[in-house]
Design a binder for these strands. Structure first.
Length: 664
DNA sequence: CATCACAAG
DNA sequence: CACTTGTGATG
């Protein structure tokens, strides 16, 4: 099958060629949005808040549990659902339906209790004085994200050398945090490198010029789906018996990767999640909801029509709201299959051009949106609605204290103490009959602390009050936004960088760009470093792989090509910044097991040095933070498996530390 | 920069 | 549901 066999050679007239080209394969490398071979995963934690509480409390998986917020439920675990418990019913009704259910109230801040959240037995009846805190869930979310990144990182370190290394080095998945319990992952680059490793016949085309040539067909024996993969049925005119093409193989590999990520989350943190795998975000997202909990669903290209046709379009992302309603009334249906019959022109007649063509594509399974390598949040908001409205400045200021404490705590978690990021603007929203808001800059100098936030909030509050009738106020919120990436104020590190890289850095006029927070990777060795303040930032946003993973997860069977450093072949058009060091001698860093160009050894060592410093710094900052917040709260409602007891009075252990402990 | 609309869980 | 957290468009 190495040579070009004519298509008609095969018995049942199956075409012995791939429908895909080398170009489409190459596009996988950098997460191009244009190739049908893309592999996008959507991973969704099952009943996330409920799972958080189960992990924290050590609740057995088969125990019904719901998370309560005042009198309503905001998450229901899967054990409780057979009892008819949903998020729509009240806590009382839940108890009636299922007397044994664990109803755990969310953690709260409480007026006058020092701005620290805690789990309180009596929170549900203190809506007047308490404010919900989602911090415990955010913290768990971060841990899960980190675990996922680690698991993905294990697919990126292959120790292979020579050609295959050159073709696949530096490729890693992009991960987008879509919400507190959802992520999108662009698996394409990883899948690409696994394909090259496992199917040597794919490597050829990257060297010769003809990128429009079809790929050789995949081996027909290749598709052996995992028993736990849920496959969406193929379109009517497609058959399982038909020979697979590379898009099927891509899904197969993607599915393996996703399974390993989910497994890691379970093994390390005890959370189950459901995943969808498809060629784009929209399909992946729909897929992940198909089989819950703890399952993964694969939407192969050949199943897309069948899959989408069965949906109401109102279930597609962005169509769940008013836009979806409008479309429904314009066209008299909410079925995708009906809308497929509406020509683009008719869509244009009712919707603006952009929306019309987006809709036309989306219902056909065409979604070119990117997986945005964003992990950082853009703003933080802390809010409270007042059931009887509040009517005095005094009342308001109590809440401002809590808002300030809430936001400050989150800033700390976000790295503000280490000066990595810093909000520039603070805003107060205030609702009476109308919504009013006031914002002011956060002083650029000095350290942001809780009292500073409070004073700024109070200033804003006074402004709002002079603006108009402030009472009765039904809603108040404080937010910080316009985050900027901090220029490190750390003298040690700053000094180090100046000394170490002065010569290289000062003359380079590189300009700031989006901080790259992709996966755990040292600065790309293939690129000449340009150190400026942005360089510093990049230094500290890319942790190295801690450790060499136990075993590369990829098949080892494919024969490694001989080391052939002087082979002058360069993969067909690659962005120029990637080709330059292919021919250089490399060494393997004994700290991170990465292959680094010899010429950048010094810089790479510097990077480890700085990284170590940063980790140390961060820990110190955290310690300081905990010290400064002595706890005084009646933590209660601890279930089986929670630890702690003992005098939790006055001072002693920091509350935050305890919460974190409880999660270990 | 203030306000509003929208979306999602 | 009620509540919370976000984003984006518009003067």
């Amino acid at each position: 099958m190495s040579s070009e066999d004519p298509p008609n050679a095969s018995p049942n007239d199956a075409v012995k060629r791939s429908r895909y080209t080398h170009r489409q394969l190459q596009l996988l490398r950098h997460g191009s949005t244009a190739t049908p071979l893309r592999a996008i995963a959507h991973i969704d934690l099952d009943a996330f808040y409920a799972q958080c509480e189960m992990v924290r409390l050590g609740t057995p998986r088969d125990t019904p549990l719901a998370v309560r917020q005042w009198d309503s439920l905001i998450a229901v675990n899967y054990a409780a659902r057979p009892f008819g418990i949903t998020r729509m019913i009240t806590a009382g009704d839940a108890r009636k339906a299922c007397p044994n259910i664990v109803l755990q109230h969310v953690a709260t801040f409480r007026e006058g209790e020092g701005g620290r959240w805690a789990y309180r037995d009596d929170a549900f009846m203190n809506i007047k004085t308490d404010k919900v805190s989602l911090d415990p869930y955010r913290a768990e979310s971060r841990k899960i994200l980190r675990t996922m990144k680690e698991a993905l990182g294990r697919w990126c370190t292959n120790e292979s050398d020579g050609e295959i290394h050159r073709l696949t080095q530096g490729l890693s998945a992009v991960l987008e945090k879509a919400s507190i319990d959802e992520v999108f992952i662009d698996l394409s680059p990883i899948v690409y490198s696994v394909l090259l490793l496992r199917y040597p016949e794919l490597r050829a085309g990257s060297q010769d010029g003809d990128r429009d040539a079809e790929l050789p067909p995949p081996p027909t024996t290749a598709v052996q789906w995992h028993a736990e993969d849920c496959l969406i049925d193929l379109d009517l005119h497609e058959r399982e018996e038909d020979d697979p093409d590379w898009d099927d193989i891509v899904m197969l590999v993607g599915s393996e990767i996703v399974r390993s990520v989910r497994q890691a989350v379970w093994d390390k943190l005890n959370y189950t999640c459901s995943a969808g795998l498809a060629r784009n975000k929209m399909l992946a997202k729909l897929g992940s909801a198909c089989n819950k909990p703890d399952k993964q669903t694969v939407v192969r290209n050949r199943a897309v029509q069948h899959f989408l046709g069965s949906y109401k379009f109102t279930q597609i992302r962005m169509l769940g709201g008013k836009l979806g309603d409008q479309i429904t009334s314009y066209f008299g249906t909410e079925k995708v299959s009906d809308l497929l019959n509406v020509p683009l022109e008719s869509l244009r007649a009712k919707l603006d051009d952009h929306t019309a063509s987006w809709l036309y594509g989306i219902i056909r399974g065409d979604d070119r949106s990117e997986v945005n390598p964003r992990t950082q949040i853009k703003s933080m908001l802390s809010a409270k609605s007042f059931r009887p409205s509040i009517t005095s400045l005094e009342q308001a200021e109590k809440w401002l204290h809590i808002f300030a404490a809430d936001i400050y705590g989150r800033l700390v978690e976000d790295g503000v103490l280490e000066n990595r990021r810093r909000p520039r603007v603070i805003t107060l929203h205030h609702r009476t009959a109308q919504m009013r808001s006031r914002q002011i800059p956060i002083p650029a100098a000095g350290t942001i602390d809780e009292s500073m936030l409070f004073e700024l909030a109070r200033t804003l509050m006074r402004q709002v009050m002079t603006d108009g009738q402030p009472w009765p106020c039904s809603n108040l919120s404080l937010s910080v936004s316009s985050f900027e990436d901090g220029v490190s104020k750390n003298k040690a590190i700053e000094g180090f960088l100046l000394r170490g890289d002065q010569a290289k850095s000062l003359n380079h006029g590189s300009r700031p760009r989006e901080p790259d927070v992709s996966l755990n990777e040292p600065p790309p060795p293939e690129k000449k470093r340009k150190i400026d303040d942005n360089g510093i930032k990049r230094f500290f946003t890319q942790p190295p792989l801690e450790h060499k993973p136990d075993k590369p997860v990829v098949d080892q069977e494919s024969p490694q090509p001989k080391e052939d450093h002087d082979e002058p072949t360069i993969p067909a058009p690659v962005p120029e910044d990637e080709v330059d060091d292919n021919l250089m001698p490399h060494y393997t860093c004994d700290r991170c097991s990465r292959s680094i160009p010899e010429t950048e050894r010094e810089e790479h060592d510097d990077w480890h040095f700085a990284k170590d410093l940063e980790i140390q710094e961060r820990q110190e900052a955290r310690d300081a933070q905990q010290q400064s917040r002595p706890a005084a709260s009646s933590n209660s409602s601890r279930g089986p498996g929670t630890r702690g007891r003992g005098g939790r009075s006055g001072r002693g252990k920091p509350e935050r530390g305890q919460m974190r402990l409880a999660f270990q």
